[in-house]
Amino acid sequence: MTSRPGGRSARVREAVLEAVHAELTEHGYAGMTVENVAERAGVHKTTVYRRWGTVDVLIADALDHSRETGWPVPDTGTVEGDLIAIATEVADTFADPERRLVPIAIVAAALQSTRALDAKGRFYAARHAEAAQVVTRAVARGELPPQNDPVELVRLTCAPLYHRIFITGEPVDRATAALAALAALAAARAGLL
């Protein structure tokens, strides 16, 4: 059977994946069921079982779908501005009581599901590769030495924020984001990456 882009199959997938996010944030990985996802999505549970089968597959598909949806890579004209914009997006997401729910639920699910862990890895690898464009542009403009690893600079920019969010529970804000970006940039300018 061939599915048409934008057809019923696409609408069902969108509804189910939205329901996955809602169920994860409301009930967590342990409380999420295929039946609840189907009910929330307004589709019959056999449709969900036939296409996805398990909660782990639902979570992985939700992450893969998010990965497939691009995001606008910052282009402020400077590597400093771009890295601060990337870090600020992370800080703003986790400072917002609503927006933070899904990524926190996904990380928690990845601690309990190998399939979700693999999907989370693919998601962040894709996002880091997209964000690395800011470093590639900076090297082309002569702002950074060419030996820097673009993906590593993005990771180093975001790592202090994720450490606060997931390890110490400290709040993150725009000032913290800017500091993380500037520290990573200093390492890159020194050719340490």
Rank of each mutant, 00 (worst) to 15 (best):
M1Q: 10
T2M: 06
T2L: 09
R4W: 06
P5G: 09
G6K: 11
G6N: 11
G6P: 13
G7T: 08
R8M: 09
V12P: 00
R13L: 05
A19S: 14
A22N: 07
A22Y: 04
E23Y: 01
E23K: 01
T25D: 06
H27A: 14
G28A: 04
Y29A: 05
G31C: 09
M32T: 15
M32R: 01
T33G: 06
N36M: 09
V37H: 04
E39P: 01
R40N: 10
R40P: 03
R40M: 08
A41D: 10
G42E: 07
H44F: 08
K45R: 15
K45A: 14
T47P: 04
Y49M: 08
R51Y: 10
T54A: 12
V55S: 01
V55F: 04
D56G: 03
L63Q: 13
D64L: 07
R67E: 12
E68F: 01
G70Y: 02
P74Q: 05
G77K: 04
E80L: 02
G81L: 04
I84H: 04
E89Y: 03
E89P: 00
V90F: 03
T93Y: 03
A95V: 03
E98P: 01
L101M: 10
L101A: 14
V102R: 05
V102P: 00
V102C: 01
P103A: 00
P103C: 01
I106G: 00
I106S: 00
V107S: 07
V107H: 12
A108N: 08
A108H: 07
A109R: 01
A110Y: 00
Q112I: 01
S113F: 05
T114D: 12
T114Y: 00
R115Q: 15
D118L: 14
D118W: 03
A119S: 08
K120G: 01
G121L: 04
G121N: 11
R122N: 09
Y124P: 00
A125D: 13
A126L: 02
A126I: 01
H128M: 06
A129F: 04
A129E: 15
A131T: 03
T136K: 14
R137N: 09
R137Q: 08
A140Y: 03
A140N: 05
G142S: 08
L144R: 02
P145F: 09
P145M: 07
P146Q: 08
N148P: 00
D149V: 12
V154F: 06
V154N: 07
R155M: 12
C158P: 00
C158S: 14
P160G: 10
H163T: 15
H163A: 13
R164F: 11
I165Y: 07
T168S: 15
P171G: 15
P171M: 13
V172F: 06
T176M: 10
A177F: 06
A177S: 08
L179Q: 12
A180V: 07
A181M: 08
A183S: 13
A183W: 04
A186K: 13
A186S: 13
A187E: 12
A187T: 08
A187S: 14
A188V: 07
R189C: 06
R189Y: 02
A190H: 03
G191C: 10
G191D: 04
L193E: 03
L193A: 06
